[in-house]
Amino acid sequence: MQNAVALSLATITAICVGFTSCSNPNEKIQLASGQVGRANPELTAQLYSQARAYENQGNIKKAIKTYGNLAGDYPMANEAADARIREAELLYSQGELMQAFEKYQYFITQYRGTSQYDKAIVRQAEVAHAASTGQITNSFIGLKSDIPRTKVEKMFIQVRDNAPFGPTAPRAQFGLGEMWERDKNTAKAIKAYEDLYVKYPKSKYAPEALYRVGNLLLNQTEKGNRNRGNLDTANTTFTDLTLLYPNTKQAKSAKQKLKQIAQADVQRSFSIAEFYENKKQYPSAAFYYNEVIRNTKSGSQLHNQAKQRLAAISQ
């Protein structure tokens, strides 16, 4: 048994020595800790110079490939961060936005705190917003193609979560809501806007997000979905907006919407009163006519009509 163990250990040692002796010292070595060994500085400097030369010559495809190879094969090299951002920037300049998004993500993940980090964050956000509006290409052919909405959603979430305390985060969340609103996916749009003003209440996008939630709910009631809950929630949302952001243009618009909801409520009460009157259920009709009278100005048309009908059924 001891001989077998000794033989196994010897075999493992021989294999490890064999791998070490056969490896190229210029190539990266994956360590047990998961770290990547630093490459030969002369080699990486040469690769970076070659990529720059291709770029200066206008051979953008080769420049992109060489930068990518350097950053991918030698991520700990002194030139790796610059190579990765140059690769992403060239893809961006060529309109290869989906590929650029991916490369910016590599940079953001691997090179936090570097001088180009903020640029990568902003650029990646621009790509996500372009994808949501369809202004994007998928290949060097230069043809536009529709990006699946689930893919764009993941892009926005990635942008948001890469810098959750930066200005790109609330803008990405708002872009997500706008995308679903354009697609007439009301439920997802409302959820995205709600998440924005909950997570980023001090953002400049928060008042608009709150207003859009109320407006989407109100539109649903106007387009045939007479769910009373939607109308009540819209009323609460607009009220919250006037209280939380009183000096914004959205608050001013919300006050008009609240008047609209109040008028709709009065009209609804009058219609219910007429329904009960036609059914000869006069006590119920009287209750709703009184609601109309109580919630309208004296002398207004609906106020006068409700008083006349109430007098008629009370005889």
Results as ranks from 00 to 15, higher is better:
E153H: 09
T114P: 10
S8R: 15
K119M: 10
K61C: 00
Q124W: 05
K144Y: 05
G177N: 07
G175F: 02
K297H: 05
P283V: 10
K119N: 06
Y111H: 04
P167V: 08
R123V: 04
F140D: 05
N3L: 13
R86W: 08
A83I: 05
A189R: 01
K188G: 01
A131C: 07
P148V: 02
L31Y: 07
D118V: 07
G34K: 08
H129W: 06
E277G: 00
E27Q: 15
S132F: 03
R123A: 14
A130S: 12
A311M: 05
L97Q: 10
C22E: 11
L7P: 00
V36P: 00
I12E: 09
R160P: 05
Q110Y: 09
N162A: 06
A130W: 03
Q46K: 15
K184P: 03
A88E: 04
E126H: 07
R228L: 12
Y92R: 10
G175I: 04
K61L: 08
R112G: 14
R84Q: 15
N78Y: 12
L9I: 06
D146V: 14
D240L: 11
V122S: 11
I29C: 04
I60A: 04
L90N: 07
K184Q: 10
Y111W: 11
Q305I: 01
I64S: 13
I272K: 11
A254V: 02
L258Y: 04
K188A: 05
S139Y: 01
F174W: 08
F156E: 02
K199I: 09
Q46F: 11
K249T: 12
A88G: 11
S21I: 15
S139I: 07
R212L: 06
S145M: 06
A88Q: 08
N185P: 02
T168V: 09
Q110I: 04
Q2K: 12
G214N: 01
S298V: 12
S8Q: 11
A251S: 13
L217T: 01
Q263C: 03
Y74Q: 08
Y104L: 06
G214Y: 01
W180N: 06
Y288S: 02
T13I: 07
I272T: 15
R228T: 14
L310M: 10
I147D: 02
Q35L: 09
I108N: 07
A53C: 01
L70Y: 03
A189P: 03
S49W: 00
G177M: 05
S284L: 11
P75V: 03
A45N: 12
T20N: 11
K252T: 15
N290Q: 12
A14H: 01
R212F: 01
G142N: 07
R84P: 04
E55A: 14
A286S: 14
N56K: 14
T296Y: 08
F287L: 09
L231S: 08
A45F: 00
E291N: 14
Q256R: 06
Y74L: 03
I136R: 03
K65V: 13
N24W: 06
I15T: 09
A192Y: 02
L217R: 02
Q308N: 13
S145G: 12
